[in-house]
């Protein structure tokens, strides 16, 4: 027997010390709104009563980070873990956002049934995309998924659908349900989106370490060999795609509830590229990297815009190129390599 396997590794002193990093991060994020309020001279009660303007603003920024993180996490499962190059991932997010908006606004649905419907849509669209999986591989799969997302991007902007989708202006006028209204109770929305992100991260962590997730890893490494070993790789790819699709659709749902407008751009290629940038910055295939990548992506855009105004986009491009060149394994990937835990 080898001493180097995780199962025979001597137990570390307790569950708590092993999970100090994630727990500390979670506590910091829960405390964050109150810290911001204190910084700007408001009492903690003002955060609870939704009266601290500064805290509200920064909670809003972080709600966006959480939503992006959930979305990036789902893309990491497809690309980083399973090795499927999809250029249509924004479709999954956009479907969730538009479905939520239309069901609540045009059909007057409650939040609960809407979420159930979004999950159902998430599964259905993954199966629809998955149909092509056995026939197209690699770049062809990228192009097919890009085509599917582009069709959606065009369809939601058509004049005929504009009573529901808002056409090229975007879907506006969605009144969030009282139970989860980001304007009436910012803190609740902040905590709910944080909780969704943490739960998704935990579930994904477990998935990649499960027998099923391990096969997905094997498919990324060498699909032909996985097939020869006796795995029906199509089924495993479809499972990964379905989980990712449901997750992205739920992120889209939160996006529709939070933002005053659902722009057609959430289904565009640039939004898929955003997911790619986030996991590249965070570390492809690391899952945790998706969270850091989303944080870096949103904060970079925010502060560059605040400090440099119009040339922010150019600077953003420079920063991305620099990161890919000098930190090719991303934030979490580089961290793990430094600590000698391998790729």
């Amino acid at each position: 027997m080898t001493p180097a396997t995780p199962s025979t590794r001597p137990a570390l002193p307790g569950w708590l010390s092993r999970n100090l990093g994630p727990l500390g991060g979670l506590l910091a994020l829960i405390a964050f709104p109150f810290v911001v309020a204190a910084q700007s001279g408001d009492s903690p009660v003002a955060v609870l009563t939704n009266e601290s303007g500064n805290a509200k603003f920064y909670q809003g920024l972080f709600i966006e980070v959480f939503i992006l993180a959930i979305y990036a996490l789902s893309y990491d499962l497809v690309l980083g873990v399973t090795g499927l190059l999809s250029f249509g991932h924004a479709l999954f997010f956009g479907m969730g956002a538009y479905a939520t908006g239309i069901l609540i606004k045009s059909f007057g649905w409650e939040l609960g049934p809407t979420i159930v419907a979004v999950i159902g849509i998430g599964v259905t669209q993954a199966l629809a995309v998955g149909v092509v999986l056995p026939r197209v591989k690699g770049v062809t799969f990228a192009l097919v998924t890009l085509g599917m997302a582009s069709v959606f991007h065009i369809v939601v902007q058509t004049h005929e659908l504009s009573p529901w989708t808002g056409g090229d202006v975007g879907l506006q006028g969605l009144v969030p349900p009282a139970i989860l209204n980001p304007n009436a109770d910012r803190l609740r929305f902040y905590l709910v989106s944080l909780a969704v992100m943490v739960l998704a991260w935990l579930a994904y962590k477990r998935f990649v370490d499960s027998p099923t997730g391990r096969v997905c890893n094997a498919i990324r490494e060498n699909e032909g060999r996985a097939l020869m070993l006796g795995y029906n790789t199509f089924v495993f790819k479809l499972i990964a795609l379905t989980i990712a699709s449901v997750t992205a659709a739920l992120a889209g749902s939160l996006h529709a509830l939070y933002q005053p407008i659902v722009s057609p751009n959430v289904a565009s290629l640039s939004f898929t590229v955003a997911a790619l940038l986030m996991i590249l910055m965070g570390g492809v295939g690391t899952l945790t990297g998706a969270l850091f990548g989303a944080l870096a992506y949103r904060l970079l855009a925010f502060f560059l815009d605040r400090w440099f105004g119009q040339i922010a986009d150019v600077l953003l491009g420079v920063v991305y190129i620099a990161l890919v060149l000098f930190v090719p394994y991303g934030i979490v990937g580089t961290w793990r390599r430094r600590r000698g835990r391998g790729a």
Binding site: P6, D209, S210, P211, T212, G213
Partner: peptide, 12 residues
């Protein structure tokens, strides 16, 4: 057991 996506692989 390959489809036990909720379990750690070491449980096999």
């Amino acid at each position: 057991g390959s489809f036990r996506f909720w379990e750690d692989h070491r449980r096999l």
